[in-house]
Amino acid sequence: MNDLLILLPDFETLLETKRFSELTSSEQSTILKFMPIEQYEAMRINTAKISKAFSMEDDYLLPDKNLKDDLLIHFNKKKENATVLTNRILFLLLGFKIPAYQAVIVFLALLFLLNKPHITEVTKILPVSRTDTIFVEKIANSPVSALQNQYIKKHIPYSHIKKSPSAVLNQNYPLLANIITHYQSEKTGRTVESDPNLYWQLVSTQFEGN
């Protein structure tokens, strides 16, 4: 850009509105660095004269009246084309014949589609647990189970017996042992129903250990 325009960006406005004498002293001194007063005045007057000349010329510069008519013909043609196209599409759609049952099917299908319950997809952010540490679980021999074992052993009758069953029976339950021996010696077996004594003997042996 010209140096004058850097110092006086509105030089053009000054030229249009102010004579040199009407400028401020700083504007005058700036302009005088670039041109004499006569040049400023010549530029100012010629600018005004040019504007006046153009303005006068404008009064005589009129576009042809036919131009507007011609443009309006174009405009209406364009408008008609758009309307004709829309009408054609409508005509084609309306004039298209299909059997009644097809129309009913289409109608029902549309009805079904429109009444279809909307499945709204809900996006829910859920926290995802991620395994970053592995815990190895080990079942240790707990003292509780050991104690339980001891308790069970204590309460199981005859659990301490390590002798043969018949010896134990003879030693601790002699009555029962006698009965068993007695009945084992018999060749034919008896049932509780056939021998009421057997029933009572067995019942009485139940109290033997208590």
Partner: peptide, 28 residues
């Protein structure tokens, strides 16, 4: 806008230099 101002300045200056034969009327 600076370019426009510059163009106007040079055009006015050029035309003014060429058109100075038409001495400005005092009343303008």
């Amino acid at each position: 806008e600076g370019t426009v101002k510059s163009r106007l300045y040079y055009t006015i200056k050029y035309l003014s230099d060429k058109l100075t034969i038409y001495k400005p009327e005092k009343n303008i």
